[in-house]
Design a protein around this nucleic acid. Structure first.
Lengths: 247, 247
DNA sequence: CGCGCTGTTGAAACTTGTCAAAGTTTGTGG
DNA sequence: CCACAAACTTTGACAAGTTTCAACAGCGCG
């Protein structure tokens, strides 16, 4: 893949953190940029950060300075209510951006936690704004990414607002499958990085309900579950589930 | 209010459509811009559009070209599922922006309908991107607006994911109250522009449940309801309702 | 002035939550 | 490497909340 002419090893560190050399170009911020433009992005995205499972990338109310691109790993974001209850607002994987919610108030409005050992690229936000004033394509692409986040949230609102438990879980599994596929993994077989409780929190259900839905899917031959390992056996069957009505 | 020195009447049309002369400056896009900068915005936002109650500002799948700032009136946005069911994703009022969801796919992903006779300012999006490359403040403010939309959506997700019916309605009423207040109207007394069914759709409830919750609030002396007319009698009481657990 | 849309209310059915107990896996420290 | 504790998952029985179905009332528009 990346066996073309490249600078000698002394600049290996630089190469390692360069967008221009990242195999996520097609998923991440550089999408649609020319080679020269991507090189400019490289300067911006100079710092990487490694996180172990369970570590926080940022917490609610911390000052917002950067957004983060996930280089590897898996995250969840969640919001806390005053009364202690919290809700998972999303699961993010490779190539996706974290921290967009912080722009509005200059401080983060949710927590971002690594669900497995992960690595992110730090993108200082004011630099990004600066560079998008220069690079049209980057500006437009960034706007698209923010907009896509809004559209995604609307999807979750529909899920929470008008689907019943099994529909929600089916939708969730198919969404995961599709995102894994886009990243070159199997569409039909993957490991969940999150607990039943986290899935439930995201889907507006209790963990017991999630567990029961998994069992039911298994009984009906739609999937094979073994703890966190999921194999999808009947995609059309799951899709059919997605179009019922609300409880 | 706007009795200061102003150009003569022949430019009245221009004055009428100018951000620099709009009393929504503090709520809308021009927020934070200098006078000179606002003048530049004026050129962008040259067209107004009037809509009667029930008219569509745009529909899902129409090509996206502009975003819209609400100059007066009241809107709802909703998303349709293949199976015919739909969900209201938001209610928008004066000074708020419509159409941000369309950026991602270059076509609108929801419908925007006027719930009363309304007027919007049309902002061609590529012009806005152009101008925000020139005007720092505008760029940043626009990013904040998009981010705020994401944060708002997270709030709705929490509402749908972990609140019970009465909590949802209380939250909804207090949110309306607060937004009316920000626009100089009474915090305690207002007319709903939407039906019980639309409220229900937004809150993930059936219209009967909404109706029952209204009745209950009235019994408990929290509000006075007369069809669409609402008077909030006990704000702290409503706030207390907002912190229960999920059904 | 009446018809239709919108809203209210009741009773029954259904879905999901709650509580509880037991089984399983994972991680840690000896 | 094993053993034990903690965390996670599954399953059952029961309770609670919301939807569904149905009937009726009221307001507003034409």
């Amino acid at each position: 893949m990346s066996t073309q002419s490249q600078p000698a090893k002394f600049s290996l560190e630089l190469v390692k953190t360069a967008c221009s050399n990242c195999n996520l170009r097609e998923l991440c911020l550089p999408l649609g940029l020319s080679h020269d433009e991507t090189i400019k992005l490289d300067e911006l995205v100079s710092t990487r950060k490694r996180l172990k499972r369970g570590e926080y990338l940022y917490r609610a109310n911390q000052p917002f300075e950067s957004i983060y691109a996930i280089r590897s790993g898996f995250f969840k974001t969640d919001v806390l209510l005053e009364d202690g209850r919290d809700q998972v607002t999303g699961f993010q994987m490779t190539g996706e951006l974290l921290g967009l919610d912080g722009i509005s108030s200059e401080s983060h409005t949710c927590n971002a936690v690594a669900l497995e050992d992960s690595e992110v690229c730090t993108i200082p936000f004011s630099n990004l704004e600066g560079l998008s004033r220069e690079i049209h394509t980057l500006q437009h692409h960034f706007h698209k990414v923010m907009s896509r986040e809004i559209v995604r949230d609307h999807g979750v609102m529909m899920l929470l607002g008008m689907m019943r438990a099994e529909e929600r879980l089916a939708t969730f599994l198919l969404n995961l499958s599709q995102r894994f596929t886009a990243r070159g993994y199997s569409p039909a077989e993957f490991n969940l990085r999150m607990t039943r409780e986290e899935i439930g929190s995201y889907l507006g259900l209790k963990l017991e309900t999630v567990s029961r839905a998994f069992s039911r899917f298994q009984e009906e031959g739609l999937i094979a579950v073994q703890q966190k390992h999921i194999r999808i056996l009947n995609t059309p069957g799951l899709k059919k589930l997605m179009s019922q009505q609300r409880a």
